[in-house]
Structures are given as C-alpha cells and as structure tokens.
Design a protein around this nucleic acid. Structure first.
Length: 493
RNA sequence: GGUGUCGUGGCCGAGUGGCUAGGCUUGGGUCUGCAAAACCUACUACAGCGGUUCGAAUCCGCUCGACACCUCCA
C-alpha cells in the first residue's frame, strides 16, 4: 500500500484562499508545473528559495509514492520588457549590450542556473522545457484564442481581449482583482498603443527590424507574448487540466491570472486544480534590489565574498535556514539568522552521527511511532517544514539523552528512528551532511584518535597543560573534543 | 490611490478560540581536573484600541506600521 493512501495532504490553494484536502486528478499521479527562471542573468537568490520550496514539495510527493511529473520551464525567449510598442525582448537587449548571440546568453545563464541548483542539492524536474522550443505550440494556442473570439490582430501583433473575456469569464479570479478597479488604476502609457484597452496583453508581438529573436507566424515575423509559454508548455506536458501550478507570489498577477484567461479562452476550461505561491525572500528587512545595493547572489552567499554577511554559509545551512520558515511566509535573510541556523543544523547533524553508536535496550522511553506520525502530520499540513524541524529537534534531544544514558530505546524503535530521520532530513528536506561528505574523514578519525589517546595519557598523568593544549589547538583547527562517560568523541565544524 | 499578505518573547520563526512550538541567545544547575558538548531548569510573547465569547495571540471592527503586487521580477 503506497504511503499516499494513509497520508492526506492539505494544500493552501490561492484560488480558494483556503487549505484544501489534496486529491489528485488521476489517482497516484501528480502533474506539477512551476514557472522557471528567465535566463538572462545569474539566478536570483529569491528564485532559489521559490524553487527550493517546490523541490521540497516534489520530494515529499515522491516519498509518499506518487508518480510525479514535475515540469519547470526555462524562459529563454525573454519577455517583453514593456507592455507597449517600444517593448524590447530582455534577452535581445542584454545580448546587444554584450555583443554576443542571444542563445549564448541563454546558454551561459542556464548553465549557471543548473550549477546553483546542483549546489543546493535540488532534484532535477521531470521535464525542463524551453520557450524557444515551443514556438509552434504557442502559435497554435494563439490561433485557438483568435478562433474563439478572444483576441484581435493589429499591425501584425495579436492581443488578448481582456474586456471581452470578462463578459463571459471572471478576469481576476486568482488575484482577487476586479476589472473595473484595474481600469481605474492602469497607468496611461506613453506613445501610441495597438491595444484596444490598456488591460489587454500581447499574445504575439511583431518584431522591430533590429530585433534579433524572431520567428515567422501567420501574423508577422515576431515573438510570443510573455504569458503564453507557460500555458503552452504546461498543457502540452500535463494536459488541459492538471493538479498543481506553482510559482513566486509576484507572478500571481498578472502572469498566472493571464494563464488562466488564456487557457479558458483557448480550451474552455480552468487549467489548474491547486495554485500554490511561494513567498518572497528579503535581505535585512527589505526586498533585494541590485540598484539599491541590498543584494546578494547565491555564489556570494556561499563564498562569503560580500559586504553583507560575516562569512560564507554551506548550501545545507542555507537550505536548513529556508526550511525553518513556511514557504508561504516572507523570509528575512540575515547574518544573525544564518548563524543561528548553522548552529542548529550542526546540532542536528551531530545527533544523526550518534545514531550509529547508540546502544539499545529492551524497552523505549520515547514513543517513536507517535513521533513519526507527528512528522508526517506536519508535512501533511501544507508542507509545514518548521513544525517538522521542531519534531526533528525533539528526536535530537532524545538521541543525546540516549548517549548520556538517561533514556533507553529498543532495537526495533532505533531502526524506525533511523529510517524516519533519514527520510525527513535527507530525502524530504534535501539536506546533506557535509561532514560525512568530506573526503578523507576516515583518515582524519584515525589521526584524531591518536591525539585523543595522547591527551588521555596526559590527563592520567595530571599534565593538564599538555591535555588542554591538545584540546584547544584541535578546536582551533575545527575539531571539537567532547568528553563523555564512555570516553572522548569529536565533531568537526 | 487600489488589491493582497502580515505585525508573536533579546533575535529568527510556528501556531490560530481554552492545553509547552522549535532554533539561536541569556541566567541557574548536573557532568568535568577546568572547560566544551550534552542534559535538566529558568525567563513566557502575541502592534494599539474597542467588540463578540464563560474564555481570544487566535473571530469581528477601527487605528498605526511593514511587505508584496498593480510596471520586468520567484
């Protein structure tokens, strides 16, 4: 019996504004689409957080035994920079500045993106389609929308008729906006626009002569509008109605709103059962912005080569830090917060390493079964990783009590404890025990044990000057000795 | 201006009608040659003002504040 039969997940659905019991459209299968990055610059750290949230969700679904098709696109066609006629494809603009081919930019930053995600121990999605690889699908989609009367052609460009759509549908259903409010608050654009109404959005844009990225279409040589690719790729790989669509909170409007409109206009139905939105990452209390300097990229955060943090942090510490907050909450990245996370993470890893050294007993003073169920309950409640981590620390305390001899555990329970910790810490949260990963750990252990024995001799001889020297200098080298009842052990930092 | 989310102890961050979140920091204790680590223990909060209720951090209203979106953005 798969685990998903006994674990009912609740998901906060942005569409309803409530937590709903998750029921996949097809039993045992999940289709999940997440809006991926635009590869015209190095991946943004906030982007990493969003994808990390969905990586964790993907991991948990898989653990429960679901067959998940996880689609995360690469936006390599660029979006319109402005929604007016002087709009320029982002990728083209950058390419011109650096005087290289657009696809060279795309390649460079796609590689960077993959490298960063690999560093943070992401699982690859099932399909990672590119916008430029789906121009034909996008053109077909536009034709469907035109045929159904929800789009108009003007000077070689095609626009979605939001006002007409709104007469038979509800534009704003996801972001809880009303078209009337949008009309009153839409900024008047400079210059002449082909749009009938400012709320309309482009499905196809005719390319200016200088525009490098262009494709032929029935309407003009041009390029697709910026909401279209996700509709084309999500429905191509997941069907016209699929389980989960995710992305950052800032994509809720207009991007996801437009996706719903496009799908209904083209196929006559809502595309998505559960909309999920990950919240933003801030830096020292305010949004990250390159222009104000309140900005740090993943490489800088990892290396410590920056003016904001006191040091670099390992990928797992950063991951642990992010998992300590709910994906739905704004998270503030601070040096202090990362340091606290690092200490907590190390404590967790130290306890996990103790698991292999524990002695078992006939009875248990810790209800492992109940604890395990609480871990699942936390995840089943809209992927509540902070609560899961709180439960994990409950086990940390217990493991340390076992080491001290103030608690007991049966052999069967130890097995469950080990398995459960492994599942949640490594499989679901995707953390990595960097200490174990470090090469040469066995040789190090041998060397440190020699020093531990030397120190033991010194202590027996009451040569505390020597014993303290060994201890203190090892600590400086990043190796901490721990004297326990059963002898001395060590941890590395 | 509009829409939305939110304001929790020294810091971070869950919870959401009565019952300990958790991490980090700090005080006391146990252990130790002294430490460290670990364990035990202490500090006990929900922006402000009203209202609903036997009871509210949790529901409702107002005020103040923060953030996001409305314009490329995860």
């Amino acid at each position: 019996m798969p685990l998903y039969d006994t674990n009912s997940i609740k998901i906060y659905n942005t569409l309803s504004g409530e937590k709903e019991v998750f029921e996949p459209i097809t039993k045992g299968h999940i289709g999940m689409y997440v809006c991926g990055p635009t590869v015209y610059s190095n991946v943004h750290l906030g982007n990493v957080r969003t994808f990390m949230s969905f990586d964790m969700i993907f991991r948990y679904f898989k653990h429960l035994g679901y067959k998940v098709r996880y689609v995360r696109n690469i936006t390599d066609a660029g979006h319109l920079e402005n929604d007016d006629d002087v709009g320029e494809d982002k990728i083209t603009k950058k390419a011109r500045l650096e005087a290289i081919e657009p696809m060279e930019i795309v390649q460079r930053y796609t590689v960077d993106f993959h490298n960063v995600l690999r560093t943070f121990n992401f699982l690859p999605p099932s399909i990672e389609p590119t916008a430029t690889g789906h121009i034909i699908e996008q053109i077909e989609l536009i034709q469907d929308i035109i045929d159904n009367g929800f789009a108009y052609i003007k000077n070689g460009s095609v626009y979605f008729d939001v006002h007409k759509y709104n007469t038979s549908n509800e534009y704003g259903i996801l972001s809880k906006r009303k078209l009337e409010d949008l009309i009153h608050n839409t900024r008047t654009l400079d210059g002449q626009s082909d749009k009938i109404n400012p709320q309309d959005f482009a499905l196809w844009k005719k390319a200016e002569p200088s525009h490098i990225m262009r494709w032929p279409s029935p309407w003009s040589d041009g390029f697709p509008g910026w909401h279209l690719e996700c509709t084309a790729m999500s429905t191509k790989y997941l069907g016209d109605f699929f389980d989960i669509h995710g992305g950052g909170m800032d994509l809720k409007f207009p991007h996801h709103e437009c996706e719903i409109a496009q799908n209904k206009a083209a196929k006559g139905q809502d595309p998505v059962k559960y909309w999920m939105h990950a919240n933003m990452l801030e830096l020292n209390g305010s949004r990250m912005s390159k222009s104000t300097g309140n900005y740090i990229n993943p490489a800088e955060l990892l290396s410590g080569k920056n003016d904001i943090m006191s040091k670099g942090y390992s990928p797992s510490v950063i991951r642990f830090f992010m998992m300590q907050a709910s994906y739905k909450s704004v998270l503030d990245l601070t040096d202090e917060g990362l340091q606290a996370a690092e200490k907590g993470f190390n404590r967790l890893m130290d306890a996990i390493e103790l698991l292999d050294t524990l002695k078992t007993d006939n009875t248990s003073t810790f209800n492992v079964i109940e604890w395990k169920q609480k871990c699942y309950a936390a995840m089943n409640d809209d992927f509540n990783t902070p609560i899961l981590i709180a439960h994990l620390f409950e086990s940390v305390k217990f493991i340390n009590q076992l080491k001290d001899g103030s608690a007991t555990l049966s052999t069967d329970d130890l097995k469950i404890l080990k398995e459960t910790i492994s599942v949640f810490v490594f499989e679901v949260l995707g953390l990595v025990n960097v200490k174990k990963e470090a090469s040469g750990i066995d040789k190090l252990t041998g060397a440190v044990e020699i020093l531990i024995n030397l120190r033991k001799e010194a202590r027996v001889n009451k040569d505390f000057a020597l014993s303290d020297k060994i201890r203190d200098e090892l600590l400086e080298a990043g190796i901490q000795l721990q004297d326990g009842k059963e002898g001395t052990t060590f941890t590395t930092n």
